[in-house]
Write a protein that binds this DNA or RNA. Structure first.
Length: 450
RNA sequence: GGCCCUAUCGUCUAAUGGUUAGGACGUCGCCUUCUCAAGGCGUUAAUCCGGGUUCGACUCCCGGUGGGGUCACCA
């Protein structure tokens, strides 16, 4: 007997990949892999008017970026003949009929195909919500096709699920009220077994409304997160935490307080039955935290590449600029950003321009220069090779600074090097600047003060 | 409005009917420190309301109220 689990993610290409869709895909992916099932990606493009290739491509690209690989791909429009045969079968069996319509708005037809609603109570089990009961009498004879050649959503959806043997329908909660109609169609088409449903609660914005275009700093489209330099594994991790918690135990694992979970861990701990019933507000702050955690684990090479790509042209034109030096800022920059996109902001703001152009600090900012000349002497005596390590520079200066008062030695030094009130520590800066430039700047500061 | 779903800190959430209602993000504070960032430590705050059932209710039942979804010749 074939009791393999079959699932599908069935977005319509009438918009870009939505963050909620990405989460649905993630949950479907995890559930399917946990059960060694088959995951079908089905593009529901029956609405020729609104479907666009551009959207389909965006959905595919987004899922690929998130590494949510499917096992099978179908484009619903390729099955149109099958849908038509299902429609014919329903009409032949008197389960659907051609209905004369009143034309109410532009584009309306005089005839459509309606399903003959048996008007009965439908009960189904939802993995997340439990038992749900509907009286289909309220639904009337709903439309299943515009004409014999063009079946629409409910019919196409059910026909495809049946044909590909989908066992579990995991989708957004907005489909809950579509379920009774679809069950009616499954029955009418003679389905031997009914799929099991799991309706995932919606992702909401700060106002508790369905997350929609760019409000409160949170983007809706997956591509935006990619563009803004979020890491796909961090986004996956965050999405998993929206509506599900690793604190809850499942059949195989105890709960854990650890929320930073890689794919493997998610696969072990996730439990579709433990998914929350209530809609969850998207919290960009928590995503930022997770992304920072993932950023820390990136290789220096990976970060350096991003820094180089996202550095504004203006900075690259500064007199002391070099790629090497930019790359040396990796550590400094990485702990100041939530995502790679902020690299452009932070570099663009000019906070780190002093690495690439000589600063001219004011007397006021430099404060006292009492120990500047002795600082210069110590630096001069330090072998050039020691400049590659900030710790060595620190060691050379530390005792002197401690003796004279660190604020009196280190503050003027740091300001001399950076020209700024706020900056990384003077040892790190000196190390990146190199011996010659460091001395030059300290001497320059001494001049300003004299 | 009808139907459906839903209700624990600001947010995401944990809690076989018996816990000082736990964790995370954020906030705030402290430590570290020449400044910033990072880091470490700590603090903060919640069971929607009203009835039941029970020795005992966040947990079960009923009723309100709030929030959400859906009512297409879209998906």
């Amino acid at each position: 007997m074939n009791n393999k689990i079959v699932t599908r993610f069935a977005p319509s290409p009438t918009g870009y990949l939505h963050i909620g869709g990405a989460r649905t895909a993630l949950f479907i992916y995890l559930f399917t892999r946990q059960n060694n099932g088959k995951y079908i990606l089905r593009i529901e493009d029956t609405d020729k008017e609104r479907s666009k290739l551009e959207y389909e491509e965006d959905i595919l690209a987004g899922l690929k970026w998130l590494e949510l690989e499917h096992d099978e791909f179908v484009r619903q429009s390729d099955n149109i003949e099958y849908h038509q045969s299902c429609l014919k079968k329903l009409i032949d069996n008197n389960l659907a009929y051609v209905s004369k319509e009143e034309v109410q708005k532009e584009g309306d037809r005089e005839e459509v195909i309606r399903f003959r609603n048996p008007n009965k109570k439908i009960t189904f089990i939802d993995l997340i919500h439990g038992e749900i009961v509907f009286d289909t009498t309220d639904l009337g004879d709903f439309v299943i096709a515009k004409d014999m050649a063009t079946p629409i959503f409910h019919l196409a959806n059910v026909a495809d699920d049946m044909a590909s043997g989908v066992t579990h329908i995991i989708r957004g909660e907005e489909h809950i009220s579509n379920t009774p109609r679809q069950i009616l169609l499954f029955e009418a088409l003679g389905a031997k077994t009914m799929p099991i449903y799991a309706h995932i609660p919606l992702i909401l914005d700060r106002d508790r409304a369905k997350l929609s275009k760019r409000k409160h700093g949170a983007s809706v489209w997956v591509s935006e997160y990619k563009k803004n330099g979020y890491l796909p594994e961090a986004l996956n991790n965050y999405l998993a935490l929206l509506g599900w918690s690793p604190q809850a135990a499942n059949n195989n694992e105890q709960g854990t307080d650890d929320e930073i979970l890689f794919r493997e861990e998610l696969l072990k701990r996730f439990d579709i039955k433990k998914v929350q019933k209530k809609g969850a507000i998207f919290d960009i702050e928590k995503l930022n935290w997770l992304n920072r955690e993932y950023l820390k684990n990136q290789t220096t090479e990976a970060v350096a590449k991003e820094i180089n790509e996202r550095c504004p042209a203006r900075v690259k034109e500064l007199p002391l600029y070099s790629t090497d030096k930019l790359i040396q800022l990796t550590q400094i920059l990485i702990e100041r950003i939530n995502n790679y996109g902020e690299l452009t902001d932070i570099l663009g703001r000019g906070d780190f321009d002093f690495f690439f152009t000589t600063p001219h600090p004011s007397q006021e900012l430099l404060r006292e220069g009492t120990y500047l000349s002795q600082t210069i002497d110590i630096i001069k005596n330090l072998p050039v090779e020691n400049f590659s390590d900030p710790e060595k520079i620190k060691k050379a200066l530390w005792d002197f600074a401690s003796e004279k008062g660190r604020a009196l030695v280190l503050w003027p030094m740091r300001v001399a090097l950076t020209g700024q009130e706020k900056s990384p520590d003077p040892f790190t800066v000196a190390s990146i600047l190199g011996k010659e430039e460091t001395i030059k700047r300290l001497a320059h500061a001494e001049q300003i003060l004299s």
